[in-house]
Simulated assay, not measured.
Amino acid sequence: MGLGCGEPADETQEIVGNLVQAGFPSNDIMVVEGKVFVGRDAEVSLDASRELLAAGATTEEQYRTNNVVSPSLTKICVNGSAFTGVFSTALDLAIQNYAEMGLTFTMARTPSTGCGFTINGIIDPNMNGGVAGFPANGNPFGQITIGGQLSQYGVDVIEHVITHELGHTIGFRHSDYYNRAISCGSGGNEGDAGVGAIHIPGTPTTASVGASIMNSCFRAVETGEFTDSDRTALTAMYRPTVSAPALVSALASNRCLDVKDGNAAQGTVTQLWECNGTAAQQWSLTAQGELRSSLAPNLCLDVAGGNPAQGTAVQIYGCNGTAAQRWTVVGGSLRSALAPNLCLDVFNASTALGTKIQVWECNGTNAQNWYTR
């Protein structure tokens, strides 16, 4: 792919200016035939560049853009009429990857009924890879371009590339955007200033070869399937919102386990508060023993620092599968997996608003008994 010649149009200049102001390194921004790309394969529209600029900065790394698909969009379709043979098969498999995830949207190939938005698929015979762009205005990017030279690989690799490019259209950055050499063997940082590169709690903050379908470069041995971290990221971003019960303290019928100030930031402590039915007081117990908060996708009830000492505060943190986030219901108590006799406890058995929630040696008192409502 060669760089375009001449001066870019005014719209292109604005997109480039927005990206530079947002923190993307100028040497990672390419203008090709009047279109603007970052990370080599992610096209940025004018609307998307404005959304990135308006969203504000973050210093966290990895995975998603500030622009995401609106929860009101329930069906995304892909027009693959240009895809034939092995490319057609690979497109069906890529769409299936998303359709099987149980997300806020389903994905299907046209012709299909009920399409809320359609992504157009194009084959470029001169390309060995793919190109897509980021969401804007609550919709996915409207086009993926897949290289015809991928025919030298098997269907799994083509499925991988299509799945990867569809990932960009719904808001995923490269998982190794901060160091393309991880998957490409060479290359630098696509933009660690952070705007549009938000880490999703529960996913790795570092990348490794083969660990994500969203790595910058693909291998000849790709399976075309999501990895565990890909699935975690997808469910965190696009898991359907469901109502979950509150955990009511046996100390008083109007006192609930609550995330302080309804703040979804990792490390926010929990407290006892008047029951109010908000997401800050809704918890879902998973089959793995996690208590997931309804405040934000992929946030779990967590013993701070994984410290089993009595009196350690209990907080919310990105779900990570550790013993600090696993709980077992025994009668009315919630026992931590950190130690054999450690329970979720209300400090000093106080019913005062704002009382600290901690772990303490299990003692069977009402300070350690909870029920759902």
Rank of each mutant, 00 (worst) to 15 (best):
L46W: 11
D47V: 11
A48Q: 04
A48C: 08
S49W: 04
S49V: 04
S49T: 06
S49D: 07
R50N: 13
E51A: 10
E51Q: 14
L52S: 09
L52H: 06
L52C: 09
L52K: 04
L53A: 15
A54R: 09
A54L: 09
A55C: 15
A55R: 07
G56T: 09
A57Q: 10
T59E: 12
T59I: 09
E60T: 15
E60Y: 09
E61T: 10
Y63A: 08
Y63G: 03
R64W: 11
R64C: 03
T65D: 11
T65Y: 09
T65K: 01
N66S: 13
V68I: 14
V68N: 07
V69N: 05
V69H: 04
S72E: 15
L73S: 08
L73K: 12
T74D: 06
T74P: 03
K75S: 08
K75C: 11
I76D: 07
C77K: 02
V78W: 03
V78L: 15
V78E: 04
V78G: 00
N79Y: 08
N79Q: 07
G80I: 06
G80M: 02
G80N: 10
G80V: 08
S81I: 07
A82K: 10
T84Q: 15
T84W: 01
T84P: 03
G85M: 05
S88M: 00
S88W: 01
S88T: 01
S88R: 14
T89Q: 15
T89K: 14
A90W: 03
A90H: 07
A90V: 06
L91C: 01
L91M: 11
L93W: 05
A94Y: 01
A94P: 04
A94T: 02
A94H: 03
I95N: 07
Q96H: 12
N97V: 08
N97H: 11
A99G: 05
A99R: 13
E100A: 14
M101W: 01
M101I: 02
G102W: 09
L103T: 04
L103Y: 04
L103N: 10
T104I: 14
F105P: 10
F105L: 13
T106N: 14
T106V: 12
M107I: 12
A108C: 14
R109A: 14
R109K: 15
T110E: 10
P111V: 02
S112H: 09
S112W: 00
T113K: 12
C115N: 13
G116R: 05
F117L: 08
T118F: 06
I119E: 06
N120S: 13
G121Q: 04
G121I: 05
I122W: 02
I122C: 00
I123Q: 01
D124H: 00
D124I: 01
P125G: 12
P125S: 09
P125T: 12
P125W: 00
N126G: 07
M127W: 04
G129T: 00
G130R: 02
G130E: 01
G130A: 05
